[in-house]
């Protein structure tokens, strides 16, 4: 069970991005989170994936409160989340070939043996051909890059998937293919999903439960402009 209780988070300014948001995702459940641009749903996704320390509130992971975020979080807790971000272009290291982008979590956690096989297997799953794997991010399209990012999110077999507007910049066929990959993975492993987006039609068809941001909280008076995408260190 992934449970956020009255979470308040922001980026160090006087007003937090949102206040007192509560949301829970059961194991194996797919929850869609709908909200307008700039409301704080990406920040919420980052808090849930242990990437951003909230200012207040509790995050419960299987009933245990989480005390540490980012590097301070235990590695097995961090890697229990597979995260896919909105801008594929910014979420892959521009210096690494796609195969290295996908294999990076395996190397970072010391699972080098069998990495090549795992990458080949995942590349087939997400629909990347072998010649694409040797290219660097600026040599492939957004859709191809997002496929690699999804493969990277799945490579450590996470128990939770957090998709932050994963398909916002993609065409319909790529969107359908990526959603199918996520659903196949969930059917196979029983992973929970938090899908953030602003496309109600997509989220309604994808997820068992779609929640509207407005029902989660009373929003903070004015979110500081640009906090959704431009982040300073925390």
């Amino acid at each position: 069970m992934l449970e956020l209780r009255t979470v308040t988070a922001g980026y160090g300014g006087n007003t937090p991005v949102f206040r007192d948001v509560s949301l829970s995702v059961a194991p194996g459940e797919a929850v869609g989170l709908l909200g307008p641009s700039g409301c704080g749903k990406s920040t919420l996704a980052r808090v849930a994936a242990l990437l951003h320390r909230p200012d207040a509130g509790t995050l419960l992971l299987d009933g245990t409160p989480v005390r540490h975020w980012r590097h301070r979080a235990p590695r097995e807790q961090r890697t229990a989340f597979g995260v896919v971000f909105q801008q594929a272009r910014l979420s892959a290291d521009p210096r690494l070939a796609l195969a290295d982008v996908i294999a990076e979590p395996l190397r970072a956690t010391g699972r080098r043996e069998g990495a090549a096989d795992r990458v080949a297997e995942l590349a087939a799953t997400v629909g990347l051909t072998a010649d694409l794997l040797s290219r660097r991010p600026h040599e492939v399209s957004d859709g191809q890059l997002q496929r690699a990012c999804l493969a990277r999110a799945l490579v450590l077999r996470p128990r939770w998937l957090v998709c932050d507007e994963m398909t916002a910049m993609l065409d319909a066929s790529t969107t359908a293919a990526l959603v199918r990959v996520v659903e196949d993975y969930r059917a196979e492993t029983g992973a929970g999903l938090l899908a953030v987006g602003h496309d109600r039609v997509l989220l309604d068809r994808w997820c068992e439960r779609t929640v509207d941001w407005a029902t989660l909280t009373t929003p903070a008076p004015t979110p500081p402009p640009g906090t959704n995408k431009v982040r300073r260190g925390n």
């Binding site: 590097h71 890697t79 971000f85 801008q87 979420s91 892959a92 290291d93 300073r232």
Partner: peptide, 19 residues
């Protein structure tokens, strides 16, 4: 600082990379 704020660093953290 400007690189650190980019999502690919978040992705690395989530992938279990140490500091």
């Amino acid at each position: 600082l400007s690189l650190r704020a980019r999502p690919h660093i978040d992705a690395a953290v989530s992938g279990g990379a140490s500091r």
